[in-house]
Simulated scan of single mutants.
Amino acid sequence: MSDITTDQAPSALLGSPHPAPAVTSEEGRAEAEKLTGTPATWELKADRSSTTVWRVTGPMGQWALKVGRGEGTVVVAREAEVLARIGATVPTTSYGARTKSGGTSTSAWLLTPWLEGPSTWDALRPVRDGKVDQRQAALAAAADMAAAVGALHHAGWVHGDIQPHHSIHMPGGVRLIGCSWAWNTSIAPSNAFHGGLLHLMSPELMTRAAAGQGPLGPTQPDEVYGLAASLWWASTGSWPLDYAQLGIDPGKFTASALRQVLVRRWPPFGNIPAWPQLEEVLRAVLTVRPDGRPSALHLAQWLRALPA
């Protein structure tokens, strides 16, 4: 699975094979088919206004081709730069050493090995569906995601956009995708980044975003909050914040308007009645002050010790 993010493309073409790409003939196509071999099958996986993702399959393997245009140009170009800098130094993003990229002033493309496996969102589906007998495997997946984030933090990086769709579970371990906003001491946070998925942002990151403080570089404690919020969401299908307690429907607000609401009044957290032990662990991360927030590796240890 490549980076499709949580935005579901409305196109009826998603997942349908095509003998050749309709919109990528000059943007990475030759490089993709050099890696996969020909004949190659092109499968459209995401098609948004500024970014398109293809799964390219040939006799020599499978690769993901992401093309950014317009506003997507800087996003795709930055992800290519991040993966080139990370290289093979961090196991959770080691595929970055094999990437290929290019572009012009109006577009950018990125080729990454196709990462085959379920996302954490997929792995926790049994929990959302109430299948108690499958909790152990789901809990292991949650712990593996936390450990993957912890490994990235240990290497001095912040991912920037942690969410359950951005971690892929493979036989060799979890791989983190969607790295466009990652940063460390060698690459500064991007001015184009606005904080990621709003419902997963820590209160302190939300405050900085609302104040227009930029560049908006999430810290590791910010990211641990986002990690716990991601696991809550993936386990329940609901946001951790109980917006009903504010009497609002977050879907009726723009991101900027909802951000202003949350800065003025942070709602209480909801509940996970079907699994109170998991709620206790995640709530302990979400409610503590930033300077007391545990590391991602500590959260992984807590999850591994949790009875299913």
Rank of each mutant, 00 (worst) to 15 (best):
M1P: 02
T5P: 00
Q8W: 03
P10W: 08
L13C: 03
L14I: 15
S16A: 13
S16T: 13
H18A: 14
P19R: 11
T24M: 14
T24D: 11
G28L: 08
E33Q: 13
E33N: 08
P39L: 10
A40Y: 01
S50C: 04
T51P: 00
V53I: 14
P59N: 11
L65V: 14
L65H: 09
R69I: 06
G70H: 11
T73S: 06
V75Y: 01
R78N: 04
L83A: 05
A84R: 15
R85M: 12
T89Y: 00
T93G: 01
S94R: 08
Y95G: 04
Y95W: 07
T99K: 05
L110F: 02
G117W: 05
V127Q: 07
R128D: 02
A138P: 01
A138T: 05
A138E: 01
A143W: 05
V149E: 03
L152M: 15
G156Y: 02
G156A: 06
Q163F: 02
H166K: 10
S167W: 01
M170R: 15
G173W: 05
I177K: 02
S180N: 06
W181C: 01
S186M: 08
I187G: 03
N191Y: 07
H194Y: 09
L197D: 13
T207E: 15
R208V: 00
A210Q: 13
G214E: 12
P215M: 09
G217V: 07
P218E: 09
V224C: 07
W239M: 12
L241P: 03
L241Y: 03
D242W: 02
Q245L: 10
L246V: 00
G247D: 09
T254R: 12
Q260N: 12
V261C: 07
E279L: 04
E280F: 06
R283V: 05
T287M: 13
V288F: 02
R289V: 08
P294Q: 07
L297I: 04
L303T: 06
